[in-house]
Amino acid sequence: MSIQEIQDEIVDEFSMFDDWMQRYEYMIELGKSLPLIKEQYKTDDNIIKGCQSKVWVHAELEGDKLVFTADSDAIITKGIIAILIRTFSHQKPQDIIDANTGFIDQIGLKEHLSPTRANGLVSMIKQLKLYAVAYQTQLN
């Protein structure tokens, strides 16, 4: 599936929920399915800066596609990063670079986009895209 198709699927899933509680319960569930980063990669170098909770992300190429693993010590953060990884993992670096992330707004998590949220999605998205840029350069 393309990034856009996956995002549409996530928006569909979240549209089934009437209230914030169900949305957050689902996010917490998603957090539990996060493809976990190997312990050896849980280093300070892989921590996303500026988060109130710790978030580690690792990326590696499988063929021409980028695969992400991650972890966090906060469970809602794990859910957020799980959503991002579901959209970006197993995709070509260039597609990740080009991807629009407006869907976050549509699934009712807009507040996490705010720069005032210490755990803002912004720094996570930026980090994932930076990995994509780095690997794209490598592919070229």
Binding site: Y24, Q52, A74, I75, T77
Partner: peptide
């Protein structure tokens, strides 16, 4: 077993 950030986020909701 609960990260303060998670609790703060849900309390805000």
């Amino acid at each position: 077993g609960i990260h303060p950030y998670d609790m703060g986020t849900l309390l805000d909701k």
